[in-house]
Every structure is written in structure tokens, then in C-alpha cells.
Amino acid sequence: MVDFIQNCLDGVMVGSSYALLAIGFTLIFGVMRRLNLSYGPSIMLGAFVGTLVYLEFQMGGFAVAVATVIGAVLAGIYVERLCFWAIRQGAAVASMVSSFAIWMQLEEIVTVFFPERTYPFPPLADRTAIEIGPFFLKLENLIMFACAAGLTVLLQVLLYRTRFGLALRAVSENPRAARFMGINIGRVTFWAFALASALGGVAAYLIIGTDAQITPLFGLWATFKGLIAMMLGGMGSIPGAILGGLLLGVVEAQSTWYLGTEYRDLAAYALLFLFLVFRPGGLMGQVAAERERAALRRV
């Protein structure tokens, strides 16, 4: 039982970073209804910009985080312009394949400039653990969790208390009606992309900081963790993305402990597959999915 709870704690800590990635995914999907496969690789590029600042200018912590976020936002904007803005609205598949092509491109750009593949990254914290009764919490995980929670609250304020947040939600609910209100969809999409990339940049800094090293594979990893967490929670739902991220973290921690490392990803994908077959709307999206189905029946 102690093990199980310890795993849950670890899972929630790690899952908080998955939640950030999933929120980024869900923001973009919400306003565009298109999938950005290049999300992970673009924040990976940002993290390498951070690495560059760390290695070349010997700057630590905050400067690296800022550089990572800036790099991620620039890469995200590049993806948005090329794969989404430039491709007409109806061609969702073309956008997705295009974002995949840019994924390949970003990965190769990084390997050209960073041929060693594995590079050091400033660690988030000393490797110490805090003891609470029979449980241990790693300091770096605690920092990651606190940052993720703080960012989520900030995001909530942004979405529900500002004019931009109102516009963003209007566009994701009904782009046609949003245009009648005079909302410029292109501009909202652009800033949603930038926002998602910035969130992703922070997530990348936190995750890579706990590993203290980075490889170009992080792009693929981040895309899939974010995608799985988003689907588990329900596409387009922010509370869903948070729950999905935490659930994914806990399932990974439990399966690693009880079954072994080689079963960790298998368990995650199996969970995703079962969810898709039996509860395609995810944890939070069920209502929306039902409504969509009902609408289809009516026609």
C-alpha cells in the first residue's frame, strides 16, 4: 500500500509536466481543429537554444529557461505560419502531414548544430528528497509540480478574465460566430500557438531539468506524451488535459513499479487504446462527444 501511494505521488509529480504538454496541445487543437505533430519538436528546438545559452555563455537557471521559451515560441510560430496559416482551412490532413515534415526538418536542424546528440542541461535542483512519513518526494519533482500548478492557475486567469481569453474560447467553440463578433481568427490562432509554445517551453525546461540532459529524441517524446495525455482527458478540454496528464503519470509510475520498465509505455498505450474504444471523449470530453454524435444523428 505504501508503495502504491508512493507511486501515485511520483506519478502525479511527473504527470504535472505531461499536463502542461497536453494543455499546449489542447489549446492549439481547440482553436484550429487540426493536429500539430510538430509541437514536441518545436519545443525541443527551444530547449536546444537553452542548452546553447548554458554551454556557450555559461548562464544558468533563469536565463536558460527564458532562452528555451523564446526558442520554443519562435519555432512554434514558424510551424504555425508554414503548416497552418498557409494551408487553406479545409485541408486538415495536409496540415498534419506538413507539420510532420517540419518535425523531420527541425530534428535534423538540431542534429546538424548539435552532432553529439546528448548534451548537459542545467539541473532543476540538487538531488535531494524530502521525507514525509513513509514517503519520499524528490525536490526537483516538487519544483516541477509547483511550477506546473502555478502556470495552470495563470492560464485559467488568462482564459477567463481577459479579452484575449474570451476571444480564444469563442474561436474554439464556434469560429463562425466568433467572426461575426469581429474577432480576427487568424490573429487569435497565431497567439494561441505562441501561448501553447511558451507553455511547452516551460514544460521542456522543467522536464529536461530533472534529467539534467537533453537529446533530439525529446521532440518525439513530448509530442506523444502530450498527445496521449490530451486524448485521455478529452480533446479540447483544459481540465481534461490536466487530469489526463496526471492519470498518464500515475499509470506509468505504477506499471514501472509492478511490471517493470519495459511495460511502462505498453501500459500507457493500452490505456489509451481502451479509452478510445470505450470512452472516446476521454475523461472530460464525453459530454461534448455525446452532443456531437447526437447532432450527427439529427441531420
Binding site: C83, S98, A101, E108, I109
Partner: peptide, 15 residues
Amino acid sequence: YRMIVFGGLVAVLLI
């Protein structure tokens, strides 16, 4: 640089 070229080509082609 194959993927840099290929990725860019594909992206432009799809536009």
C-alpha cells in the same frame, strides 16, 4: 541535410 530539404519541400508542396 536531407530532412531539412525534404521537410521544407513537403511543407511548401502541401501549401
